[in-house]
């Protein structure tokens, strides 16, 4: 997820830095001083959550949870993520100073998009409409991932590397399986409508982040094309994990403390 120092070209670094700075500036302007403790404490929780490792087959992935972060913090996700990334860069060495802007944009913009997309569905008065929209969104998202998977598959077919084809199709099959499973759970009523919106938000944000990382790599030079594709492929399993996890979290929150969804104005 993190891009390291030294890989990206200077125009991409500067562009990312400017975008991140303006995003942070705008959301700071919107942020009330009374909300500061709340946002700070929540961003500490998300920092801790990013240290949690979930086993995945023989290895494990660490959580990013930018979908959940966007849903709960809204615009405040931008400065919260910038702070978390700065801390990670300085004290863990993940990412670096020059890529801070690009990394912040890559993670925060999907979080914001998910906020605009899912906030309505999560707290919709009209349940039926929320269900319909969720169905539609699921279909669109499902088709996009299938298409992305096939596009990558064909690319690899031309190159003829057998290893990458296997990895790609396995992760794609896994992900579409999980998507279908999530839909099944939701249809059976085990997953509430809000939970399903959380599922969509959680996996969509990772997908968008992977795409943005791939774009920033691809913009930096032709030679990163393969790495960019690899990033998207490698994130299919992460999308499944984050989607299901976010669904569980949202389901809990809507039952236990629904005001969390409106914690920050």
């Amino acid at each position: 997820m993190h891009i390291v120092d030294g890989a990206l070209s200077n125009p991409v670094l500067i562009g990312g830095g400017l975008l991140a700075a303006s995003g942070v500036a705008y959301s700071l302007k919107k942020l009330e001083p009374e909300d500061l403790p709340r946002v700070g404490v929540l961003s500490a929780v998300f920092f801790v959550a990013s240290l949690i490792h979930v086993p995945l087959g023989f290895s494990s992935v660490h959580l990013i949870l930018n979908g959940l972060l966007g849903i709960i913090l809204g615009w405040a996700a931008f400065p919260a993520l910038a702070v978390a990334l700065l801390l990670q860069a300085v004290f863990f060495g993940f990412g670096g100073l020059t890529v801070l802007g690009v990394n912040a944009v890559n993670i925060a913009v999907p979080a914001l998009l998910v906020y605009f997309l899912c906030r309505w569905g999560l707290s919709a008065e009209k349940h039926l409409l929320a269900k319909r929209v969720a169905d539609g969104l699921f279909l669109v998202f499902f088709l996009i991932t299938i298409w992305a998977g096939f596009a990558l598959y064909q690319l690899y077919q031309v190159e003829g590397g057998s290893w990458s084809v296997t990895v790609n199709s396995v992760s794609l099959i896994l992900f579409s399986g999980v998507m279908a499973y999530g839909y099944f759970l939701y249809r059976r009523g085990i997953l509430s409508v809000a939970g399903f919106w959380g599922f969509l938000g959680g996996s969509l944000s990772i997908f968008l982040t992977a795409v943005m990382v791939a774009i920033s790599l691809a913009l930096s030079g032709e030679e990163f094309g393969k790495a960019a594709e690899f990033v998207i492929v490698a994130h299919f399993p992460v999308m499944a994990v984050e989607g299901l996890l976010t669904a569980a979290t949202i389901q809990l929150i809507t039952k236990v403390k629904p005001e969390l969804l409106h914690a920050v104005r």
Binding site: E34, R38, L42, A44, V45, I52, L245, K257
Partner: peptide, 23 residues
Amino acid sequence: LRSIGYLVGMMLVRSLERSDRIM
């Protein structure tokens, strides 16, 4: 996944309560 999701959710709930006390 569900257990860890609930864990994150509980941490969020507790953090909100704590932030109210801080305020």
